[in-house]
Design a protein around this nucleic acid. Structure first.
Lengths: 355, 355
DNA sequence: CGGCGCAATGCAAAGGTTTGCATTGGGCCG
DNA sequence: CGGCCCAATGCAAACCTTTGCATTGCGCCG
């Protein structure tokens, strides 16, 4: 069982020095070598099934043609399209992608980033950063971008969505349907999306002169169905004096709708609900989710481009890091509807009956 | 800007040889070194923020503590849970995961596998293999497992589902609802799941003495909604003499249901439809999908264990490779229903009207 | 015809870690 | 008290590639 052929093997066969082989095989340096030798080397390499040993190259060059992607949980449907976007850009340029999940845990994130740095990744795409992130500044000299999220201080380039605009669209839509008492299931404010969607809700609520009622705002501790359920329970325990619920994300909305149903409230007949992200299949749910569409794939795509720029132009740390804001789009579906004129009292009655 | 600290740096500070540092840092060899030195080395390493350079280690040992996962498309919801299962097992043991998509393209798969081999992955989990796979035998001496899929010749260990049992459950369920004329949207027979689900359908159709009608079987070229739509169109163009459609996977079923609706046929009122996989959120679709639940996460988990075994026990190529078959479970939801006594003629009439 | 420059190739070091073998020193047994 | 063994550590090679510099040989210009 011969082990993997190396450049020395090729050099031996062709009868040249190993450095010649190295140059012949590299498109950027093969012009230095006579065409015949380049041809012969290529031929022998192919016959032997030669594959350059990445470890050797990495050791010498301190680069690995590998980048890391860190997400909270690949099982959350918003991430796969983003990851795919990154991979599509990068694999075309010969980069490999190493992936890790953190479950939103800060310590775990530090671990996986360390493990990636140990593997000499050339760049990192973080979709798991917190709004006040302590980790990124300590990463040092490997390029980092954040995707879907950003940090309070612009410490790394980021690709984010126009959250403010998205929330404004959703709220405007609800108001145009006659809703005035609108609850907000907000995301965790420790995460930029959670924070800015909540902030946008408050801003536009004021501007649209909707009534202020602190009971109508509940903060989730995570972006998932379970938290959506918990928050809906909390909300309903406080009051049922609302006709619509704006949720900071689709999965929260799904959980909320489940609880409404459990309490005998129908969506959208009794309560309209909006989500955010337009996650895959959101249009096939029952009810089909009215939500804000974001370009998940594009975000990954842009993040990868940013990363490539940073990697290939070196540490151009001049001025502020780039901040790409992708436009969003409201998608109106079945989970929102014109407010029923007599909705609030009826809601209350049903709720009482369900207890 | 100091570059990354190395073992030499630590050795210099502590005043020992670099090999001593190496041994002190490795849990498997640190018993060879006096406890005081181990402590001091650990201390200095921590202070310096030392991270072993994986390239150096990999060069020396020919192992990288990295494994590769190859999937057709991470955007297909069945894969993320599986990937997560692999990662959970592996990351705990200090392995990193590199991920690649192939879009089911054979050449692309060869490419990404080559790129992973160049990076000295210690193992490969393939969810993209074809039934007659030419690639795996050429991989050589790095352990491979296939997940979700298998090959005709048992050339590598695999983790698959009990497809036969799943199809039997689905078919039994439909028959118990009074369906007799049942169409089959089968998957590509070039893929083991496609092949064995189709084969199981035929076997159990015979055993249950359901009528044989070749027009009722349509083969998809891929497991996605678009192919589901195409196949449904094909089926309807041939005949509408059926009351149920058994689909080889959920995404096909989703596409099928779309087309039925477009033709004015309601699911489940006019036609019952079953899927396979119970992909995430399949229970929230409209109609909620009756389908066969498979353990995606568990499959990844088992695959990772198999891989670890193979990696750590060396090439124990004795006997046939392991074949783990995970049990499945029928999940009855809203897309199937008792056959309407007058369904077939009515179906036909509606179909005619839609044209 | 001599010298210069350039094209093609060789040389050797470097990069960080691991590991078989060598060395040292101390303790223990005979 | 001498010899032996073991524990602790050092030494050096090996893993494979890249790359700055050296070398060679040839062609061309002056």
């Amino acid at each position: 069982m011969r082990s993997r052929p190396t450049m020395s093997d090729i050099a031996g066969i062709v009868g040249v020095h190993v450095s010649t082989v190295s140059r012949a095989l590299d498109p950027k340096t093969c012009h230095l070598i006579s065409p015949e030798i380049v041809a012969k080397v290529g031929e022998v390499a192919a016959k032997l099934g030669f594959r350059p040993n990445a470890a050797g190259a990495s050791l010498r060059t301190n680069r690995s043609r590998t980048i890391g992607i860190v997400v909270p949980d690949i099982t959350d449907p918003v991430f796969p399209p983003m990851i795919r976007g990154v991979e599509d850009v990068l694999s075309e340029r010969g980069y490999a992608v190493v992936l890790a999940n953190t479950d939103g845990d800060e310590a775990r994130e530090a671990e996986v980033v360390a493990s990636m740095l140990a593997r000499s990744v050339d760049g990192l795409a973080l979709a798991s950063s917190r709004y006040e992130d302590k980790l990124i500044p300590r990463i040092g000299d490997v390029p980092v971008v954040t995707v879907f999220r950003e940090t309070t201080k612009p410490v790394a380039p980021c690709v984010v969505f126009d959250e403010n605009c998205g929330i404004r669209h959703a709220l405007t839509h609800l108001v145009s349907l006659g809703h005035r008492r609108i609850a907000n299931i907000a995301g965790p404010r420790t995460i930029s999306t959670g924070y800015s969607r909540w902030e946008a809700f408050e801003r536009h609520r004021r501007e649209m002169k909707l009534p202020l009622d602190k009971r109508l705002v509940v903060f989730a501790d995570g972006f998932n169905e379970q938290e959506g359920e918990r928050c809906a329970e909390t909300l309903l325990a406080r009051t049922s004096d609302f006709t619509a619920i704006l949720c900071a994300n689709d999965r929260l909305a799904v959980g909320v709708i489940d609880v409404l149903k459990r309490y005998g409230l129908r969506c959208p007949d009794d309560v309209s609900v909006t989500g955010f992200n337009d996650m895959p299949y959101a249009g096939r749910f029952v009810p089909a989710l009215t939500t804000v569409r974001v370009q998940q794939y594009k975000a990954g795509w842009e993040a990868a481009r940013l990363l490539l720029d940073a990697i290939e132009t070196g540490p151009g740390r001049r001025g502020k890091p780039a901040r790409i804001v992708l436009p969003v789009e409201l998608v109106v579906r079945g989970s929102t509807q014109q407010v029923a004129s007599k909705a609030p009292p009826r809601t209350r009655r049903r709720l009482a009956a369900a207890r």
